[in-house]
Design a protein around this nucleic acid. Structure first.
Lengths: 161, 161
DNA sequence: TAAGAATACTTGCACTATGCAAGTAAGTTT
DNA sequence: AAACTTACTTGCATAGTGCAAGTATTCTTA
C-alpha cells in the first residue's frame, strides 16, 4: 500500500516551512553565500572558507545542493581533479532573502559589537546597501546579473582572512 | 588563560553566518511564524501546530528563543498552568526576511505542485502580497504593527488543519 | 471537595547530523 | 619517478532531533 504524499515529502505546504526544510541547516546557506558572494567554485576553496566546515560535511552538502537544484557541478576544464560548482536560478532567486537576512543581522547588538577587523570596505558597503531601503530593486538585480554571468557579488575583492 | 572571543561566540562576523547560527535549525523560524503569523502564544497551541514538533524540542526551543531575546515569556493571567510567549522587536525585525522567504518558496515548482487544499484564502492573499514587489513597505509595516500590538498577521483567520 | 481532565513539561531511548582526525585515490607538478 | 595537490572516504565521538511514556501542577466538574 502506498501512502499518499500531498506535500511532496514535506511536513506542510507552508512556504516558511518549505524554505526551512530546504535550507534550514548549519551549512547550506553559508555555502551558497561563498559561491554567490565570494565566487568560490571548488571544493577546496569552499573548504578553506571562514567558518571551517568539515570535509565530510562539505562533500555531503555539495551533493545535496546539486541534487536539490541549487548548484550545478561541472568538471573544471584545466584540472581533471576539480569540479566547478555554480549557482542555479533557484539559488540566485534567494538573493533578496540574503539581503534581508544581512539587514537583520546588521541591526542586532550582538553583531554590531563583534570585532569586524577582518571585514573589507566592500563588505561594509554591502551591509549599508542592505540596510538602506531605497534602490533595493536595482541593487538586487545587479547582484543577480553578476552571479548569472559567472561573476560574484564581491567580484575582484580579496578577503582579509 | 582566557581565549579571546572576537565574534561573541560565533564562528565569523559574517551577517549571513550570524543569522544561520541564530536561527538555522529545524524549528526556530517555524515557532516564530506560529507566534507572529498565527497568534499562537502558548506551549499547547504551538505543540498542536501543523508540522508536529516534539514536546521536548518545543520546550527546549522556547527556552532558547526566550534567552536569545526573540520571545518574552509571561504567566497567563487567567490560567496559572500557562505561560504566554510574545515576539520581541528582535523577532518582529525578521518579518521582511520572512516575506522574502515566502516569496522564494512560492516561486519554486516543488511548492507550487503541492496540495494546497488546507490553505485559507488569506494565506493565498499573503503569498500574493509577498510576490508582488510594490507596496512592500506598507505591507510589512502593517504586519509589524499588528504583531507589536498583540495581534498577528492572520488575525481572525482560522486554520483549516 | 474529591475525581478527573488539562497543561506543561521531563525522561529514556533510538536515530540522524555534525565535528575532528586520519587515510586514500586520482591527477598534477617537478 | 617522486612529491604534491585535490577531493574525497572512513572511523569515531558528540550534539540535535523524534517518539513514547511518565509526572507535577492547576483547573474543572460532579
Amino acid at each position: 500500500m502506498e501512502e499518499k504524499d500531498p506535500f511532496n515529502g514535506r511536513r506542510s505546504f507552508c512556504p516558511v516551512n518549505f524554505a526551512v526544510e530546504s535550507l534550514g541547516d548549519r551549512w547550506s546557506l553559508v555555502i551558497l553565500r561563498d559561491v554567490m558572494f565570494w565566487g568560490l567554485h571548488t571544493y577546496g576553496a569552499l573548504l578553506a572558507s571562514d567558518e571551517g566546515i568539515s570535509t565530510n560535511i562539505l562533500a555531503n552538502r555539495l551533493d545535496q545542493l546539486v541534487s536539490d537544484g541549487f548548484l550545478t557541478r561541472t568538471p573544471a576544464p584545466d584540472d581533471k581533479r576539480k569540479d566547478l560548482f555554480y549557482a542555479t536560478e533557484k539559488a540566485i532567486a534567494l538573493l533578496p532573502m540574503f539581503v534581508e537576512m544581512i539587514a537583520w543581522s546588521a541591526q542586532q547588538d550582538d553583531w554590531q559589537t563583534m570585532d569586524h577587523g577582518e571585514a573589507t570596505p566592500e563588505q561594509f558597503g554591502l551591509v549599508e546597501k542592505c540596510l538602506r531601503r531605497s534602490d533595493r530593486r536595482d541593487f538586487i538585480e545587479s547582484m543577480q546579473k553578476a552571479v548569472r554571468t559567472g561573476k560574484c557579488v564581491f567580484e575582484g575583492v580579496v578577503r582579509k582572512s
